[in-house]
């Protein structure tokens, strides 16, 4: 899981162009939106595209998305449970 979290953090930095950040700056359990990294709805779209492109996982509903994209840890858990 730790390895996946680190990989995911790097992918998030790249996808969202967070040039000033390193993987150590992202708290795995902190909320990604509003608090924590302070991401917004466009970032949510980018993360949805990231999950589909890199892990072939499609978020089906907005409610599901809220839970999955809550933090890096919740994303990693979703990936490890559902990766084909």
């Amino acid at each position: 899981m730790e390895e996946l979290i680190l990989k995911l953090k790097s992918e998030i930095i790249e996808a969202l162009n967070l040039e000033e950040m390193s993987v150590d700056d992202i708290d795995s359990e902190a909320p990604l939106f509003i608090e924590g990294l302070g991401l917004d709805s466009i970032d949510a779209l980018e993360l949805t595209v990231l999950l589909e492109k890199k892990y072939a996982l499609k978020i089906q509903t907005a409610d599901e998305g809220k839970k999955i994209l809550y933090s890096v840890k919740s994303m990693a858990e979703y990936i490890s449970q559902n990766k084909k």
Binding site: A15, I42, E46, V49, E52, K53
Partner: peptide, 12 residues
């Protein structure tokens, strides 16, 4: 991406 999975930011 064969017209799928477009990143929104460059488009916007």
């Amino acid at each position: 991406n064969e017209e799928k999975l477009l990143n929104p930011t460059p488009f916007i």
